[in-house]
């Protein structure tokens, strides 16, 4: 393993971005939710989820919304809040038989992810930078201090194989990793 310990290079940039989005757009979300009888916490939860979607679409996938980015983020937040409201109304009607989406979050991957992080955070960080954040090989080399794009590529696949084997091992060893 030749990975050097490098902090997430762009997390500071992300913090600035998220802060700005909160200051610029959240008040409009809060006003909408407030006017429609929702709570501040609901507005916050919806906005938090909307930021993730916004980031994936606009920053990672370079999607350019037809409206302004602020309007786009506001739209996502509204939709999320309206959906959650619908759901909670349905849940009330169903009473005891409710199965909320949150409780359906798979415990399987929860444990597995925790294990993978403990077993090799560097590999997971490298892999997510490429496959999730979609950094180029050049950016990846910069963030993780590789000498060349070729060695970054080799390391990426080595990590992929390592993690894949860990996933396999865990899936076959522990029944509690299976649903």
């Amino acid at each position: 393993m030749t990975l050097t310990e490098v902090p997430m290079a762009s997390s500071a940039t992300r913090e600035t971005l998220f802060t700005q989005l909160y200051l610029d757009t959240f008040p409009a979300v809060a006003r909408f939710v407030g006017q429609n009888g929702g709570s501040l916490e609901e507005a916050q939860d919806s906005f938090q989820e909307a930021l993730l979607i916004y980031y994936e679409k606009v920053i990672i996938n370079n999607f350019q919304p037809a409206c302004s980015e602020k309007a786009y983020l506001l739209g996502i937040s509204r939709n999320i809040w309206l959906k959650s409201r619908e759901k909670s109304v349905k849940t009330e009607l169903l009473d005891d038989t409710n199965i909320s989406e949150d409780s359906a979050v798979q415990p399987t991957s929860e444990k597995l992810l925790l294990f993978l992080q403990q077993a090799g955070k560097k590999c997971m960080d490298l892999l997510q930078s490429f496959y999730y954040e979609r950094l180029s090989m050049k950016e990846l080399s910069g963030r993780f201090g590789f000498g060349s794009e070729r060695s970054a590529t080799v390391q990426k696949y080595k990590c992929l194989e390592k993690v894949r084997e860990q996933v396999k091992e865990k899936s076959l060893t522990y029944e509690d990793f299976l649903d």
Binding site: F18, L113, Q128, Y132, R164, V167
Partner: peptide, 20 residues
């Protein structure tokens, strides 16, 4: 594994958003 990497990335991002 690809699916898990995606979840890992999302979790990290969520954590950062929660901090902000």
């Amino acid at each position: 594994t690809y699916q898990l990497i995606r979840e890992y990335g999302q979790r990290q991002l969520r954590r950062e958003i929660r901090q902000v």
